[in-house]
Structures are given as structure tokens and as C-alpha cells.
């Protein structure tokens, strides 16, 4: 980007230059307003996708429960407990648990430990990009009531005020056995048809968004990250 024909408005000084809103002078001298952060903005509200009825939904829930694809996203110290889970000793693969590197393909997000406000923003983006149905496992006491960071100025106290949580695994940190038990609990929950967190999130979107926006002061993303 040639710097000499770029003018920045006074706002957005906290963003890096690539992301700032700016007026670019085109080849014929015309002014073009460029706002990179809003290039792919979709402002539409999401709609809840209701489950089917009867045996079809039960069969699908069984498949969903037996094939849990986990988003490889570690937020806090708990993410160090995830790699042993896939090692020969604990071997979570035998429960159908596998790691996926992209939120589009994964159905479970593990919030592993304390969650700072900066990370919460990334968690919300990743969570909303996952496809319905999606499940949240919260690891460690930090996600339940703040844990040892309960009076910190920068870590949240209750995760369920920001995204719907399916299973909490208590402990600081929980051992891999406890995480495996949590996965089995989640499977049981999905098979019972109670894994409807994604729809709850969309139905109560206003409440969740109000809580999120209360602590994320520089809200520079769409209300729902498609």
C-alpha cells in the first residue's frame, strides 16, 4: 500500500494501519472510502434451527454424540491438559473425539481455563462461526466462578453469561480422566436431546450480546459473526 496517497481519519488510531478506515485516492483522482474491518460485514440476525422430531433426531443426535470434533483453541492454562488427552495413555479418539483446526468443521469448543476479555472476543468469534448444533465444555473453576482469578480486573467470572455452556468440568486443573468423564457427560446430554445450546444462544441473543458488550469495550465486529 503506497503511503503517500493515503489519508487517515482522526478516529481508529488504535488499529493497525492496514485495518484503519481511510480515504484512498484512486488513479483518476477520485476519493474512495475504504473500511477493511467492514468488508465482509453481515448484519443479519441468525435464526434458530429447530430440531426435527422423533426417531430421526434421535439417530442424528446419536451420530453427533459419537463424533465430537473439538476446535483446537486453548484459552488458558487448561489447554495444556488437552494434548495428553490424545496421547496413547488417555486416547480420547476411542470416544470419537478428534481435534479440528477450523471452527467451521468442529462441533465442540473447550474453554480451557481462565478467559481474559481479549480472549473472550476471539472465543465469541470462533463460537459464532461454528455451525448449529454446537456444544461448549468449560474446563476448570475459572470458568465457573473465576477461580483464583475471581478478583482480577481482566478475567471473566462466569462463562455462562457470555456463551451457553453444556458441561462444566470442575477442578484446577481437571485431570485428563475428568475431561474424559466430561466428554461422556456431554455425549449423554446430546443423546437426551439437551444439547441445544446454539438455539438457546440465538433465542437469548440480546441478553448475551448485552453482557458481552458490557465488557468488550471496543466492539468492532458484527453483532453476529457469520
Amino acid at each position: 500500500m503506497p503511503e503517500d496517497n493515503v489519508k487517515y481519519p482522526a478516529e481508529d488510531q488504535s488499529l493497525s494501519p492496514v485495518n484503519r478506515k481511510r480515504v484512498v485516492i484512486g488513479p483518476e483522482g477520485e476519493d474512495i472510502l475504504v473500511d477493511p474491518l467492514r468488508d465482509y460485514y453481515c448484519t443479519a440476525r441468525p435464526e434458530p434451527e429447530l430440531p426435527r422430531q422423533g426417531i430421526i433426531e434421535k439417530f442424528m443426535n446419536w451420530a453427533r454424540a459419537e463424533s465430537l470434533w473439538v476446535l483446537g483453541f486453548g484459552t488458558g492454562c487448561g489447554s495444556i491438559e488437552i494434548p495428553p488427552l490424545l496421547s496413547p495413555r488417555y486416547d480420547a479418539y476411542r470416544f470419537g473425539v478428534a481435534m479440528r483446526p477450523t471452527p467451521r468443521q468442529s462441533s465442540v469448543i473447550i474453554i480451557s481455563g481462565y478467559l481474559s476479555v481479549k480472549t473472550l472476543k476471539r472465543v465469541i468469534r470462533s463460537y459464532e462461526q461454528m455451525q448449529n448444533p454446537k456444544f461448549v465444555i468449560a474446563l476448570g473453576s475459572c470458568t465457573i466462578n473465576g477461580g483464583m482469578y475471581w478478583d482480577s480486573y481482566n478475567t471473566i467470572n462466569r462463562l455462562d453469561h457470555y456463551i451457553p455452556v453444556d458441561v462444566y468440568i470442575a477442578g484446577c486443573m481437571p485431570r485428563p480422566e475428568a475431561i474424559l468423564a466430561g466428554f461422556n457427560k456431554l455425549k449423554q446430554r446430546i443423546k437426551e436431546g439437551r444439547g441445544e445450546g446454539a438455539n438457546d444462544y440465538i433465542k437469548n441473543l440480546d441478553w448475551y450480546k448485552a453482557n458481552q458488550k458490557k465488557i468488550i469495550k471496543d466492539w468492532n465486529m458484527p453483532d453476529y459473526n457469520w
Binding site: G146, W150, N157
Partner: peptide, 10 residues
Amino acid sequence: KYSEETYFPR
């Protein structure tokens, strides 16, 4: 105080 005001203490 900031945490109690901001982060919904359980």
C-alpha cells in the same frame, strides 16, 4: 471492586 461490578460474580 472493578471485578465485582463488571464480571457478574457468582
